[in-house]
Computed example of a mutant assay.
Amino acid sequence: MPATEPPLPAPPRPPRRPANDIGLYDELAEQWWRPRGVFATLHWLARARGALVPPATRRDAVLVDLACGGGLLAPHVAGKGYRHVGVDLTASALHRASAHGVLAVRGDVLAVPLASGCADVVVAGEVLEHVPDLAGAVAEACRLLRPGGVLVLDTLADTALARFVTVTVGERVPGGPPPGVHDPALFVNRDRLVRECARHGVRLRLRGLRPSLVDLARWLAGRVEHVRMVPTRFTTVLFQGRGVKEPS
């Protein structure tokens, strides 16, 4: 009988990234500006976030976009009169943000390399649920604001429902976040967030946010490229915050 060769070993499984691993954004760098790619939800949120940014009231006004990623906010604040400064840790994302008119600054949201009081608006979109030090991130965002400046944010609530919707379900459906992008242990306690902002002179008002179910169904069917995010009084999953910094 002819000798039989031993079966080849199975190829090794690719290592699963730890939850909230920033290296994921380099791996997915080509996805930033694809409206039906893995960052689709971020496009929808960027439009909703931009709607909370008021027009500039002075010349040389500055908007600081914390964790700007690929610059998805840019088209939604263009024409409002701001110099759009984007801060992010990922060089590949900043490269794409620059291509869309954002002045890119590489830095950590816990130690932003910009002067105190430099910003008329600070935007912190979908970042607070990724940082290990909520108080530090809030302090930096508020430090950057000049008196009368506006803080705009959106993030995920520290609730069982948010964990189920965004991780258990959301990371497994089209348009949802990439698997492993979130660490539910970092989801944001709403009361604590409001208190931390108040400590730095910003009275934050919250409202819930969800996708339009009609738009979502049409998007899943390939009939539209964008899903509207609509406000809701329920802040138990995804929510927005907006506040003004009081004079010192």
Results as ranks from 00 to 15, higher is better:
H76N: 15
V62W: 12
Y82Q: 06
G69L: 06
H76Y: 13
S92R: 05
S92K: 13
G81L: 12
T90L: 06
L72M: 08
L89D: 04
L63Y: 14
R83Q: 10
C68D: 12
L66P: 04
A67T: 04
L89K: 08
H84I: 00
V87K: 02
L89C: 15
H84G: 07
V85Q: 09
A67F: 14
G86F: 07
H76G: 14
L73E: 11
V62Q: 11
G69K: 11
D65H: 00
L73I: 04
D65K: 00
D88W: 03
G69H: 12
V87E: 13
G69P: 09
G69C: 09
H76C: 03
L66V: 08
V77L: 00
K80D: 12
V62Y: 08
G79A: 06
V62F: 01
L73A: 15
L72Y: 14
L63C: 04
T90I: 06
L63D: 05
G70E: 08
S92Y: 15
Y82C: 01
G86N: 14
A91H: 15
L72Q: 04
G69S: 14
L72P: 03
G81V: 09
D88Q: 11
A74G: 07
V85G: 10
K80G: 03
T90A: 02
L89Y: 15
G86V: 02
L66M: 14
P75F: 09
A78L: 15
V64I: 02
C68I: 08
A78C: 12
G69E: 12
V87R: 01
L73R: 07
T90W: 09
P75N: 09
L72V: 03
G70F: 05
G81S: 13
H76P: 11
G86Y: 12
K80M: 03
V77P: 03
L73G: 11
V62E: 12
G86W: 05
G81Q: 12
D65Q: 01
D88C: 11
V87F: 03
P75R: 10
L66H: 10
A74F: 01
V85P: 10
G81W: 10
D65L: 01
